[in-house]
């Protein structure tokens, strides 16, 4: 028996919004420690790594490890049926063919159940080595979203250049060039608004706007985003999910041909 309950279904809704543009289907690995998803987009350019710890749920029970293949589009449709104040419970048997989503209104007067068929999926797991990154930048997620959206108008990719002074984002295309520089904030009174740059070595990397604009869909999950970068390796773009876990996106860089 697998059962996981979240008082705030809104968290799960936001998680689905954060992955539905990248993934069509994904395997949800459920164990005693929680729920994990690792899945690449079809082009294998980006990867989503989602971790929801069991202790972050309001109720969690997982008698044996389960690998459940789910259609992200279908799951997203189901979660759209949850009221913003509803509680959500995920429930599956030990050898499940289906997973059930149960939404309960705060006054317990409305109970909705949605059963979704699971799908058989080929497992393709990537080993991601622990890496110490040359630059780690933390910044407001809204600011990062804004920068990605604004610069996407000027080119297909954005160059991230990080130095001691701060981080510079730039895009260029047929119409010209656009650059946005962010300096480290002087006072960290407001942690949510802060920009911090932890640099060991300067980094310059170029990434496709298409994927960045998918990642920023996770913005509503967390006020801050963390960008981990080293030259010539994939970017890690991480959003915390309250006290329950995190979503990390890996993005392969563009390189000079």
């Amino acid at each position: 028996m697998f059962e996981a309950r979240l008082v705030q279904s809104a968290i799960l809704k936001k998680v689905l919004d954060a992955i539905k543009d990248l993934l069509t289907e994904a395997t949800f690995e459920c164990s005693d420690s929680g729920i994990q998803v690792q899945a690449m987009d079809n082009a294998h350019v980006s990867l989503v790594s989602l971790n929801l710890r069991s202790d972050g749920f309001d109720k969690y029970r997982c008698d044996r490890n389960l690998s459940m293949g789910m259609s992200i589009a279908c799951m997203s449709k189901i979660l759209r049926c949850a009221g913003s104040e509803d509680t959500v419970t995920l429930r599956a048997l030990d050898n499940p063919e289906n997973i059930v989503f149960i939404f309960e209104s705060p006054n317990k007067e409305k109970l909705a159940e949605y059963e979704m068929k699971l799908i058989n999926m080929d497992q393709e797991h990537l080993g991601i080595p622990e890496t110490s990154y040359s630059c780690i930048v933390k910044m407001p997620s809204q600011e990062f979203s804004r920068i990605c959206r604004d610069l996407s108008q000027f080119g297909e990719s954005i160059t991230f250049a990080c130095s001691k002074e701060g981080i510079k984002f730039s895009a260029s295309g047929d119409y010209g060039q656009a650059t946005i520089k962010l300096a480290q904030t002087a006072d960290a009174d407001n942690e949510e608004e802060a920009v911090s740059v932890n640099m060991q070595e300067p980094v310059k990397l170029t990434f496709s706007c298409r994927y960045l604009n998918c990642f920023i869909k996770a913005g509503p999950l967390c006020a801050q985003v963390q960008l981990s970068m080293s030259n010539d390796v994939p970017l890690v773009c991480e959003y915390k999910i309250g006290d329950i876990g995190h979503i990390r996106y890996y993005l392969a860089p563009k390189i000079d041909d």
Partner: peptide, 14 residues
């Protein structure tokens, strides 16, 4: 001209 790499250029299947 820049070329898009894939994650397979960096990570191994496990």
């Amino acid at each position: 001209i820049t070329k898009q790499t894939t994650l397979m250029n960096f990570f191994k299947k496990s």
